[in-house]
């Protein structure tokens, strides 16, 4: 079966990003496919590579990167939600005159159409947070 995954909550305020990771890993290990993982609302901060949690805490954004590399997952961050919350790709930052950019490798920034498309083209939408 093919799943679309939607994550809505800020990883510092909710375990949703981590629960979604466990679900996605279990789905892939069971032989299912993931159409797309879409980060929306507060969850977009997962994709920032300028977060520095204390050394004994895992970086959940990095865990998603590892899973994405292993299974060639598409990790998409909503552009409007990301701009509100300070997550910028190099291209978007350059286009709008911002000096810094912080989007992790393995993530792409795109529009909400990607969420709708994923939910229509997959068998199930599973939302977290």
């Amino acid at each position: 079966m093919q799943f679309a995954i939607l994550i809505n909550s800020d990883p510092n305020q909710s375990p949703a990003v981590r629960s979604a990771l466990k679900f996605t890993r279990a789905a892939l290990e069971a032989g299912h496919t993931i159409q797309r993982v879409f980060f929306y609302q507060g969850a977009v901060t997962t994709a920032s590579d300028m977060l520095l949690p204390p050394q004994n805490e895992e970086k959940v954004g990095e865990l998603w990167s590892e899973l994405a590399e292993k299974y060639k997952l598409e990790l998409v961050v909503c552009i409007a939600a990301a701009q509100r919350r300070g997550v910028w790709s190099e291209a978007e930052a350059g286009r709008l005159g911002y000096k810094a950019h912080n989007l992790r490798a393995d993530y792409t920034i795109s529009g909400l159409g990607q969420l709708i498309e994923a939910s229509v083209e997959s068998d199930r939408l599973v939302s977290f947070g």
Binding site: N8, A26, A30, R124, S127, F128
Partner: peptide, 20 residues
């Protein structure tokens, strides 16, 4: 249940209502 069963349940039901 563990996550593999969570996944299995999603396949067994027609739609997921994720209350928020």
């Amino acid at each position: 249940i563990d996550y593999p069963e969570f996944v299995e349940l999603v396949t067994q039901y027609d739609v997921v209502q994720a209350w928020s």
